[in-house]
Design a protein around this nucleic acid. Structure first.
Length: 270
DNA sequence: ACAGTAACCTGTTTGC
DNA sequence: TGCAAACAGGTTACTG
């Protein structure tokens, strides 16, 4: 479900409800997520005040004076702010209770994560290897071009590699490549500097527009207040197999690359 | 070092 | 209608 815009929408949505607030109770109903929720997490988090809520790639980093909770939404995770004591639904795996309000995590497929670290979060084994933020200053054409030297992989799989750049998932990879006019199967090393510049701009543009629209709701994503994301209306290729290209009218093609559905226009993308 | 694939899970859609 | 296979927005770990 969630790529960078959806995680950012989530971060912005829950921030005002938890920043500066103190966790009065932690309830774990299902500890077996992508990795087991650490046994010490409940004790570590209880009575801690939330001092920050940051995003790194698709990870949410919830800071306290004692350490940082590292959270991930996986494929199907979402947070809701609910009234404390309200009946948990199916797949509601954990609650962070802040007095009258509760931050509740729901995740049918259980690819999400909740971890705890007392070191600086950026040094954590899952966070440290991550590439630059696509909306940050280090991500530019020169960097992307340099990274692509000698790489045999396709440009689509290249921009979806979190060590190259974070936050570009399956939807926005297809969308950014369409906007940049680059064929998803083109080898990464065969994209020149000028087209890398175009690609960097397309990635930034599509992510920023999606954040503004509150993310993309394809099936079941919703913000922490339950509202959907509206970027689906702006999608040019993703989930539009056989529909006309918005630029040239050619039927949009769908293929599987690296076990992921990929959508593109055979005329506009080379 | 890199690329490709299987694996982790459940729910929904598709095809016979 | 029923059942099985395929597929879904992510990421790591393993294999070659």
């Amino acid at each position: 479900m969630p790529e960078l815009p959806e995680v950012e929408t989530t971060r912005a949505g829950i921030s005002p409800h938890i920043l500066g607030k103190t966790i009065s109770e932690v309830v774990i109903r299902q500890p077996s997520l992508r990795w087991p929720i650490p046994k010490n997490l409940k004790k570590s988090l209880k009575n801690q005040k939330i001092t920050s809520l940051d995003r790194r790639g698709k990870y949410l980093l919830m800071g306290t004076s004692a350490g940082t909770a590292i959270m991930h939404l996986g494929m199907s995770g979402s947070f809701r702010i609910v009234k404390t004591g309200s009946q948990p639904q199916k797949h509601d795996h954990y609650d962070l209770i802040f007095g009258k309000k509760t931050l509740r995590f729901n995740d049918p497929r259980r690819f999400g994560a909740l971890l705890w670290t007392t070191k600086p979060a950026l040094e954590h084994a899952l966070i440290a290897p991550l590439g630059p933020e696509p909306l940050g200053p280090e991500f530019d054409a020169t960097y992307l071009y340099a990274q692509a030297r000698g790489r045999k992989t396709t440009i689509k799989q290249f921009i979806m590699d979190g060590r190259v750049v974070v936050g570009v998932g399956n939807i926005y990879a297809s969308e950014a490549l369409f906007r940049a006019g680059i064929h998803p199967r083109r080898p990464a090393r065969r994209v020149g500097l000028a087209r890398m510049r175009k690609l960097v701009n397309s990635i930034r543009e599509v992510l920023e527009q999606a954040i503004t629209a509150g993310g993309t709701t394809l099936r079941d994503f919703s913000a922490s207040d339950g509202s959907p994301g509206y970027f689906k209306q702006e999608l040019q290729v993703y989930d539009r197999m056989e529909k006309p290209c918005t630029q040239c009218g050619q039927a949009i093609r769908q293929e599987v690359m690296g076990q992921r559905s990929t959508y593109y226009c055979v005329v506009c993308q080379r």
